[in-house]
Simulated scan of single mutants.
Amino acid sequence: MTQEVELVDLTARFPQLEIDLKYATADNLTGYAIYQDARCLLHPDAAKALARSVEIARLAGLALVVYDAYRPQLAQQHLWLACPDPQYVVAVTLGSNHSRGTAIDVTLRDEAGQLLDMGAAFDEMHPRSRLWSPEVAAAAQRNRLLLNAIMHGGGFVGIHSEWWHFELPDAVRYPLLRDRFSCASLPATTTVQPI
Rank of each mutant, 00 (worst) to 15 (best):
D110L: 10
I19A: 06
R71V: 04
R128P: 02
D9V: 11
A47E: 07
L42E: 01
L168Y: 00
L177G: 01
R58Q: 13
L147Y: 00
I34C: 01
D170W: 02
R58N: 14
L50R: 03
E167Q: 15
T11Y: 09
Q193T: 15
D9A: 05
A171P: 00
L168R: 01
Q3S: 10
M118C: 11
P72A: 08
D27W: 09
F166R: 12
A49V: 10
E111C: 03
A38E: 14
A149H: 06
Y67K: 03
P44I: 12
A91Y: 08
A63K: 12
L147P: 01
L176F: 10
Y32E: 10
R71A: 09
A184H: 02
L81F: 14
A49E: 02
E18R: 09
S96H: 08
V65H: 01
L115D: 08
P127G: 05
P86A: 12
V66F: 05
D9S: 10
A103T: 14
I159E: 15
L168D: 02
F14T: 04
L21W: 06
W163D: 03
I56C: 00
P84H: 10
A24C: 11
R144V: 03
R13V: 08
T102E: 08
A137H: 13
F14H: 05
T25Q: 13
H165W: 07
D117K: 09
T2R: 07
A57L: 07
P127I: 01
L42W: 00
D179W: 14
R128E: 07
Y88N: 03
Q141N: 05
V92F: 02
A103C: 08
V192I: 13
V5N: 09
S133F: 08
